[in-house]
Each structure stands twice: as C-alpha cells, then as structure tokens.
C-alpha cells in the first residue's frame, strides 16, 4: 500500500463509500469494505481513553487538591518528620548496636552480625544520612500501609462482597507500573517527600490487605468451631483465634509490603523524595556511575537487612505453632 491516506481520512472513509454507492457497485464496495476490515480494523472506533483519563485525573486533582494538601499531607509529613527525627537522633554506633540486638532477637545471631556489617558498610560508603532518610520514608509508608491495610484486610475476610469489591482494586494497584503513580501524586501533593510517600503507600499496601484477608480466611475451621462452641462472639473469635493464627501470613504480607515500599521509595526520588534513591538518580543524571552504584548498594543492603528481620519476626508470630502439625 503506497502512500497511506492521512489518518483522519483513513479512519472513516469506508463507511460513507458503502452508504453512497450501495446501488451501483455493490460487489466492489463490499470487497473494499472487507479489505479495510481485515487490514485496518482499528480505524473504525477511536476509544478516547487517553483523553478520558486525563480528564478524570484533572477533575480529581482540581477537586481534591485542597483537601489532600490540608488533610492528608500534614499527618503524613508529621509522621515522616517524627520518624526521621527519631532515627537521625540515634548516634550511628548505637544504631548499629541496636540493629544487632534486633536482628538477634528477631531471627538469629547471624542476622544480627549481618545487620552490623551491612549498616557499617553503608556508613563507610558515606551514605549514612541518605540511608536514614530512606529508612524513615519506608517506616512511615509501612506505618500507613498497616494502619489502612489491616482494617481493610480484616473487612475483606469477613465479607465476600467487600472482598469482591477490593479484588479488582488491588489488582489494579499491583499491576500498574510504579511510575504511573508519580504523576497524580505530584499533581495532588506537589513535589517532595509527601507525594513520594503517598505513591509508596498506595503501591505497597496491597500485600497487607491480601495476606491479612488470606490469613484470616485460612484459619482452620476446627478452631473457629471450638471458639463458637464455648460461646465466643464474632469479635472474640477474630481477636482471640483468627487474628493470632493469621499472624504468620500477615507478617509475610508485611515483609512484602516493606520490600515494595523500599523499591518505590527509590523511584520516588524522581519526584523529589530524598535518600538513597536520590543518590542513584543524581548519579545517573550526572553520569557519575560510582555515585549511582553506592546508592544502589546501600539500597540492596538495607533491603536485605529489613527482609531478614521481618522474616524472623514472622516466624516468631504466635500462630506459627500451628504449622508444626
């Protein structure tokens, strides 16, 4: 096909031709119609998805910008500042010692030793302060993920209808590429730590919801029957039986959430969140490969420590005793 006609023409030209010339050269026009249908079927309909979404986002931003900047930003920023202040006021030596104790208690002495090595390396590479910022961002994001995700997870486990509503939402949240969150976050919250945190919270929350729901639903019905037989109320069953027994699963969700939060916090550097992510981003921008790698190594070390410790906590959870049988 030489020289294709301009797009606007190509899109609709088959229809009027068929309408006008139906009587004179039916056969030829029908063949032409089928040819267009086979070779360029998408020309018939133009779904204005791009425009619709732009409109929706614009509407949301216009409607909620004030709301989000007055009611959502302050608590998020407040918690973030508090956590960061707390973490940065611990002297690095004491901090490292504390992670050793935590690693030992949560998992094993090996994990404790590993934490010491990892944090010491981060310090020696000269990105300690950046690490503290990243850790504060992660802790803050995870705090909100649990605060919102846990009740949603519990609700999902108790009502099939609510879970039916949550499922597609969670699917969308999890499959949307992380970069996509950044645009509306910036539009709603401007740039800086807060939009990065908001994007992180949204991106990292699904595992908590999903696994809380899963953990509670998978509690062996025998235990629930026993609780019922002794006259427990629904609430007592939830808090005395289901929740503790779901704890290992919930902890696995928390672990995933922490990992997702860490990865997102790094990406959020693009919109002005600080920390190790910024190190990577700035390094890449200036083609300073060394700087970018230092940031990257710091992120990996932090991720490994957080992973080992939360996994250890998960195995300490009370309900884990059930797995022995």
């Amino acid at each position: 096909m030489p020289n294709p006609p301009p797009a606007r023409y190509r899109r609709w030209h088959a229809v009027p031709i068929i309408q006008q010339n139906w009587g004179s050269n039916r056969m030829g026009e029908l063949v032409e119609f089928l040819r267009v249908l086979m070779t360029d079927p998408f020309g018939f309909i133009d779904l204005p998805v791009r425009q619709v979404i732009t409109d929706i986002v614009n509407w949301i931003v216009a409607t909620f910008r004030d709301f989000s900047r007055t009611y959502i930003s302050p608590p998020v920023r407040g918690v973030m500042n508090g956590v960061q202040w707390g973490l940065s006021s611990v002297p690095p030596g004491a901090f490292i010692l504390a992670t050793f104790v935590l690693g030992w208690w949560a998992a094993s002495w090996r994990v404790g030793v590993f934490s010491v090595i990892a944090f010491a390396l981060i310090g020696f590479m000269g990105v300690w302060d950046q690490m503290i910022i990243t850790l504060s961002l992660v802790v803050t994001a995870v705090f909100f993920c649990v605060l919102i995700g846990l009740p949603l997870g519990i609700l999902s486990s108790r009502s099939d209808r609510f879970y039916g509503f949550m499922r597609p939402v969670l699917d969308i949240m999890q499959t949307t590429p992380p970069f996509v969150y950044l645009v509306p976050a910036v539009m709603l919250f401007s740039i800086g730590n807060v939009p990065g945190l908001i994007a992180t919270i949204v991106f990292a929350m699904p595992p908590v919801i999903r696994l809380t729901n899963l953990g509670i639903r998978h509690v062996n019905p025998e235990f629930i029957e026993a609780a019922v037989a002794f006259g427990s109320t629904k609430r007592q069953i939830l808090w005395k039986v289901q929740f503790p027994l779901a704890m290992p699963t919930i902890m696995a969700g928390l672990n995933q959430t922490i990992m997702l939060a860490l990865s997102m916090v790094v990406i959020a550097a693009i919109i002005g969140a600080g920390g190790l992510g910024l190190e990577v981003y700035a390094g890449l921008e200036r083609l300073n490969i060394g700087q970018a790698f230092v940031g990257g190594i710091g992120i990996v070390l932090l991720a490994m420590v957080l992973d080992r410790i939360t996994q250890g906590l998960g195995e300490k959870a009370p309900g884990v005793r059930d797995r022995g049988e």
């Binding site: 025998e222 026993a226 037989a229 009370p318 022995g324």
Partner: peptide, 11 residues
C-alpha cells in the same frame, strides 16, 4: 464440647 481432633488453640 470436646472435639475429635482436639481443636486446641495452638498459640
């Protein structure tokens, strides 16, 4: 009630 598979709360 007493159950066939005990149903003791493991935690």
């Amino acid at each position: 009630m007493v159950f066939q598979h005990f149903a003791l709360l493991p935690h």
